[in-house]
Simulated scan of single mutants.
Amino acid sequence: MDLPVVVGVDGSEPSMRALDWAADEAARRGVPLRLVYASLWERYEGAQLAEDLGKPSGRLRAEDIVETAARRAHGRRPDLKISTEVLAEEPEYVLVRESRNASLLVTGTRGRGGIAEALLGSVSLTVAGHAHCPMIVVRGSHDNQTGSTTHGRVVVGIGAKPALSGALRFAFEEARRRGVQVEAVRAWRCPAHETTDHPLLAGEPARLHEQRAAEELEAALQDAPADVELHRRTVEGHTRTALVNASHDADLLVIGARRHQRHFGLQLGRVAHGVLHHSACPVAIVPEQA
């Protein structure tokens, strides 16, 4: 059974851009698309109260939104198999639950004006921290080119573990589907307390840190597939800054989120938070095992 691409919709423009991305992704993967709308209006307020206030029922409004979204997805990808669901629950809980039976979860961003537009909505941030499958948050200035390969590359952040991680595998798969290259980025820093007086770093502390980063990058990529063009890059500075800068010339930015035992969901660190809030392109969060 092919697991669907699941997308959360709520009628907002960011969610419609996420819908477009999800439709394109489902078509690339050859899997169904599942549209989910979740709201507590029907549970807490009810259709009777809506009628008393002379306002449309939350349920009717939700169904209209989902039907409109389904028509949009079908118009974009006529051959795509599409299913819909309207649920009277918190959207965070619904999307996390849906991620258990999805090949990919897609959400948009929410914000209203100024700084808010640059930041990630609470629903997407919460779901990113608990999803059971890879998740793409469609954000950034490239939203009007949803699903395109404008820059011809997928960027993936590389940590210190010398292994082909879930994030790396995901990046290679996405690049293969799009026919684009992968750029693997490993950031490094020379700690301020290290000086030329350090016995192991005498004279060249920065060079040795850069060399170590290059070696870690090479170790992580040792099992990289041969059928995808791969570029390696080491960058001095904070990892989140290096990845956000790289996102300006990327179609997709991929990072891993490590799952810890006895911890509910994923432990999103400062790098993931920074990238999710400030990336200039869509971001894929891929669960990693500790």
Rank of each mutant, 00 (worst) to 15 (best):
A284K: 02
R17L: 14
S83M: 02
A163E: 15
A242R: 01
A224L: 09
L53W: 15
W188T: 06
N144G: 09
A69K: 02
R232I: 01
V31F: 12
S141E: 14
L164V: 12
G237E: 13
A219Y: 05
R43Y: 12
D10V: 06
A246R: 01
R61E: 11
P32M: 02
R153F: 02
A219H: 10
V180G: 03
V6H: 09
R110C: 04
G129I: 00
S279D: 01
G256K: 08
A246K: 01
E174G: 07
L87V: 15
A250T: 07
G8V: 12
R232N: 02
A192V: 14
E215M: 09
R29S: 06
R176W: 15
V182N: 14
E174W: 07
A23V: 07
L266G: 05
A242H: 05
A213R: 01
S103C: 10
E204P: 06
P225M: 10
L276G: 01
D223P: 04
A102W: 00
A184M: 04
G152Y: 05
L19D: 00
R139K: 14
E215P: 01
L80Q: 09
L200W: 13
L33A: 10
V66D: 11
V94I: 11
V138H: 00
L119W: 05
P14V: 13
A213I: 02
I158V: 15
L33V: 09
P4I: 04
R61V: 15
G265R: 08
A242D: 03
T196H: 11
G129V: 00
W188Y: 15
G203V: 05
L125T: 00
Y93D: 11
G152C: 10
V94W: 02
V127M: 03
L221T: 12
A26L: 04
A206L: 06
E89V: 08
L35V: 08
R112A: 15
A88Q: 04
T126P: 00
G269C: 11
L19Q: 00
R186V: 01
A284F: 09
I136E: 00
V254W: 05
N245Y: 09
P162K: 14
E229F: 03
T195I: 11
V7D: 00
A214S: 15
E85P: 00
G11K: 01
T109N: 02
K81F: 04
E288C: 06
E89F: 05
E174I: 05
L3C: 01
P78L: 04
E67N: 10
V244T: 02
R177L: 15
D64A: 06
L276W: 05
G113Y: 08
R59H: 10
R240I: 04
G147I: 08
A167Q: 03
A220Y: 02
